Amino acid sequence: MHLPPLPGGPATGGPGPSAAGLEAVEHLLAGRGVAVLSGAGLSTESGIPDYRGATGSLRRHRPMTYQEFVASEEGRRRYWARSHVGWQAIARAEPNAGHRAVEELRRSGRVSAVITQNVDGLHRAAGTVDAVELHGGLDRVICLGCRRTSGRAELDRRLHTLNGAFRGTGSKVNPDGDVELPAALVETFRIAPCGECGGVLKPDVVFFGETVPRPRVQQCYDLVDAARALLVLGSSLTVMSGLRFVLHAARTGKPVVIVNQGPTRGDAYATAKVSLPLGAALTALAERLGGVPPAP
């Protein structure tokens, strides 16, 4: 299958949002075996912002990079101070109608697999316990020394003990779970080492500038290969981490349908594109489809 050149930005000539696009999603989900790739846009209705607005432009927030985190204790202190405050909002967030509709579609057999670029754990909270978290999860922590993993709640308790007088507040949580804090306040924050080896603790997520573990990437390719089609929900596909699965599906002749408010870098490869609020659209689709589809 011949593919157009990879666009450097949002597609300008691809399919546009329309009622026909939503009908295409319904048609896609009428059978079995659709793999879902979800992004930050699916979690905005749970109060977690995305990295880009409807225009596709990056918001002012600059996320922590892997290089900054490992390079200095100052960088790690800045991350953990801001994340310590932001984690409370992430921990309180609940799955929205979109997450619940995806799980309903999975239980019915229409959705065969869920791959998410999100680190908020909301697919799991909605019941999709086998969702592949491409970029990891904020509710887990890993030691860069001994590689031991532990729960974020355990670290949160330790950080509270170390920073009893810390009274950081943030106006809003960022997509990667931190908030903006004054530099003077960050300087007073004490970070916790690994309880086993004293090494550096890092959230078990893939930072910008870090690569997704190869076995996890291969697992996602295998899920896309086993699927009949790929449905993208709430992702701008700006980074190759998620876009590669759209390219792979298109190269192998599988339909690709994108539901996202705003342009995406995968629009040129989409069979159909629709721009609607995800919670309402997915709930309506799950209700209209209902039941278990017939076997192919």
Rank of each mutant, 00 (worst) to 15 (best):
L3C: 11
L6P: 08
L6F: 06
A11Y: 10
Y51W: 09
A54Y: 05
A54T: 13
R60Y: 15
H61W: 14
M64D: 14
A71W: 05
S72G: 14
R76T: 00
R78T: 04
R78W: 01
W80N: 12
R82W: 15
R82Q: 15
E94M: 08
N96L: 05
G98E: 02
H99G: 11
V102K: 08
L105T: 01
R110S: 09
R110K: 11
S112T: 07
Q117C: 04
G127P: 12
V132C: 03
G136S: 13
L144E: 10
R148C: 03
S150G: 05
D156A: 08
G164S: 04
R167Q: 13
S171V: 13
P175I: 03
D176P: 12
G177L: 07
A184P: 04
T188Y: 12
A192N: 01
C194I: 05
G199R: 01
G209E: 03
P213I: 06
C220Q: 07
D225L: 13
V232R: 08
G234T: 12
S236V: 05
T238E: 08
S241P: 08
F245D: 13
V246S: 11
L247C: 09
A250P: 09
R251W: 05
P255G: 01
P255Y: 11
N260I: 00
P263T: 08
T264G: 06
R265P: 00
D267I: 10
T271F: 11
T271D: 03
A272P: 00
L276D: 13
L276T: 07
P277H: 04
G279N: 04
A286I: 07
A295P: 15
